[in-house]
Nucleic acid binder design. Structure first.
Length: 439
RNA sequence: GCCGGGGUGGGGUAGUGGAUAUCCUUGGGGACUGUGGAUCCCCGGACCCGGGUUCAAUUCCCGGACCCGGCCCCA
C-alpha cells in the first residue's frame, strides 16, 4: 500500500519504459523533420516570472498557471507555453542572423481541470520562424506542421483550418463592429455551442443585427483557401481594400508545393492567444472528434512588447496529450517491443567472470547486453532473458570456457550454435544491424 | 471553480450489515543441480480516506481526496 502523501498530483502523468519508448518515437520524429526544415533545437527555463506571461495576456492568466511566490517573495510560475520564453531568447541575441528557425520539445504546466486531451503537465513541441514577414514564411510553418504529422503516420488523416486575424478584424469592421477583438472569442466558440447562443453573444459583443446573417453564413460554410472569395461573394460583404485576402490565397498556393492542397478557410479558427496578428491555423483529425492537434499563427508585435525591437514571427505548438488520443484512435501510436538486446547467461559462479567479459565486449561493440547480477539457475536466467525480450541469449559454462567459445541461442526458435567468442560477437553484431535496418 | 459518473490485492473480478473476503492474472520462489514461453506447488498482496447510523460498516448515509468525462477557460 502506497502512502497517500506519495500519490502523484492530480493531472500529472508518469511514463513507464514501454510508454516512454512510444513517446520517444514521437519526439524523434518531430526532431527529424524539424532538422530537415533547418530548424535547430533550443531549451529554456521551466520556471519564469509571472510578469513574463502577464505582459501579453492579462491578470486572468494567473488563475490558470502553476504560479506561486518563491522564498524571496517573487511571483513566479511554471511556464504554460513557449512563445514568451523563445521570444526573449531571440531578443537577447540581436546578432543572430535571420531568419532564425528554432524548435523545442519541453514540458509545460497549466492549472486546469484534467479531462480528455488535457493534463496539468504535458509535453509540447514548438517551432518558430523569426524575421521574415511573408507568405513564404507562413507556408513554411504550416508545411512543417504538416510534414511532422506525416512523419507520425497521420498523412491523409488530418485537415488544416486557417484564418487570419487582420482579415477577420477588417471584415468585422465592414460589418459595422466597433470592437472586433471582443467578437473573436464568440467566433472561436461557434462549433462548440448552439446557433442561438452564438447569435445572442454576437449581438452582445456589438455585431449589428443586420450583419448577423452574413457573419453566420461565413462561419457555417468555410471554403477551400483558394475559393475564399466565392464564400464572401454570396454574402454581399465588400472585400475591396482588404489585402489580407490575397495573402491567404498566396499561402494556399504555396502550400501546394508542400503537397498540402485541401486547406480550409475557417473563420471560427481564432486561437486564444491575443498576440496573434496575422494568419492563424489549427490541425484536426478528419472526424473532428478531438481538440486541435496543433495550432499556431503569426505574431508580429510580441517581440516589440518584450524587447522593444519589432521582429515578425510565426510559429506553432503541438501538445502530446491530444496527439496521443488522435494517434491511438487511428492506430498509429507506436507500440514497439523495445531495443535489440542480448542476455548473457552463465551456468556457475565460476563462469560468471567469463560471461561478464563477453557481456562487456558486446557493449564495447555497441550491442546492448544484459547479465544477471546474481548467480542463478540457467533456467531462471533464460526466463529473465525471455521476459526482457532479448532477441538472443549467450550461454557460457565449463564447456564453452574449455574451448574459448560462446553458445548463442536464438530466443525466437530455440536454435543454438557455439562459436569462438570473437565469432559470436560478430554474429550478434550482424544480427543487430539487420534488426536496425528492419525498423 | 462548477456538474455528472466511478472505486474490492499491481491489473481484471466475485461477494457480503457479522465468521479466515472469491477467482483469474501479474510479482517472488520452487519442482527443473546446463536450457525460457507449458504444467503443477508454495509465498506476497485489496475493501480510497474521514465522520455518521448500528451491538457490528468493505457493504447504508454524509463529506473529502482521487480517477473518468463534461462545463468555465483555453495561453
Amino acid at each position: 500500500m502506497i502512502l497517500k502523501s506519495m500519490d502523484k498530483l492530480r493531472g500529472f502523468r508518469e511514463f513507464y519504459p514501454d510508454e516512454m519508448r512510444s513517446r520517444r518515437v514521437i519526439f524523434d520524429a518531430s526532431r527529424k523533420v524539424s532538422q530537415l526544415f533547418g530548424y535547430e533545437e533550443i531549451s529554456f527555463p521551466s520556471v519564469e516570472s509571472l510578469d513574463l506571461f502577464r505582459m501579453k495576456s492579462g491578470e486572468e492568466i494567473v488563475d490558470q498557471t502553476y504560479s506561486f511566490r518563491d522564498k524571496g517573495g517573487r511571483e513566479i510560475t511554471l511556464i504554460p507555453e513557449a512563445t514568451p520564453s523563445v521570444s526573449r531568447m531571440l531578443a537577447e541575441r540581436k546578432e543572430l542572423p535571420r531568419p532564425v528557425r528554432w524548435f523545442s520539445f519541453e514540458k509545460y504546466w497549466r492549472y486546469e481541470e484534467p479531462q480528455a486531451g488535457r493534463a496539468r503537465e504535458f509535453y509540447q513541441y514548438n517551432a518558430d520562424l523569426f524575421g521574415p514577414y511573408s507568405e513564404m514564411a507562413d507556408a513554411e510553418m504550416i508545411g512543417l506542421a504538416g510534414a511532422i504529422l506525416n512523419e507520425l503516420s497521420l498523412k491523409g488523416k488530418y485537415s488544416f483550418r486557417v484564418s487570419h486575424r487582420g482579415f477577420i478584424e477588417k471584415v468585422l469592421s465592414k460589418l459595422g463592429v466597433s470592437n472586433p477583438a471582443a467578437v473573436l472569442p464568440v467566433l472561436d466558440r461557434y462549433h462548440k455551442t448552439t446557433l442561438e447562443t452564438t447569435v445572442a453573444r454576437l449581438i452582445e459583443t456589438g455585431v449589428p443585427e443586420k450583419s448577423i446573417d452574413q457573419l453566420i453564413s461565413i462561419l457555417k460554410e468555410g471554403s477551400k483557401l483558394d475559393k475564399i472569395e466565392d464564400l464572401f461573394a454570396d454574402t454581399g460583404i465588400d472585400l475591396t481594400g482588404i489585402e489580407e485576402i490575397g495573402w491567404l490565397k498566396r499561402v494556399g498556393k504555396l502550400l501546394e508545393s508542400y503537397s498540402m492542397k485541401d486547406i480550409v478557410f475557417d473563420a471560427s479558427v481564432v486561437r486564444g492567444f491575443t498576440y496573434y496578428t496575422g494568419i492563424v491555423f489549427e490541425a484536426f483529425d478528419l472526424k473532428g472528434e478531438n481538440r486541435a492537434i496543433l495550432g499556431g499563427g503569426r505574431y508580429d508585435n510580441l517581440l516589440s512588447v518584450i524587447s522593444g525591437n519589432s521582429i515578425p514571427a510565426v510559429g506553432f505548438a503541438m501538445g502530446d496529450v491530444v496527439l496521443e488520443i488522435v494517434m491511438k484512435s487511428l492506430n498509429t501510436w507506436p507500440e514497439d517491443d523495445g531495443a535489440f538486446t542480448v542476455t548473457v547467461c552463465f551456468t556457475s559462479g565460476e563462469s560468471s567472470i567469463y560471461a561478464l567479459d563477453i557481456c562487456n565486449k558486446l557493449r564495447k561493440r555497441g550491442i546492448p547486453a544484459l547479465i544477471s547480477p546474481e548467480t542463478r539457475s540457467l533456467s531462471t536466467q533464460l526466463k529473465d532473458a525471455s521476459r526482457h525480450r532479448s532477441r538472443f541469449s549467450v550461454i557460457v559454462g565449463d564447456k564453452e570456457i574449455a574451448q574459448k567459445g560462446a553458445t548463442i541461442r536464438d530466443m525466437a526458435d530455440g536454435s543454438q550454435v557455439t562459436f569462438p567468442v570473437l565469432e559470436a560477437i560478430k554474429f550478434l553484431d550482424k544480427k543487430r544491424n539487420i534488426t536496425l535496418l528492419g525498423q
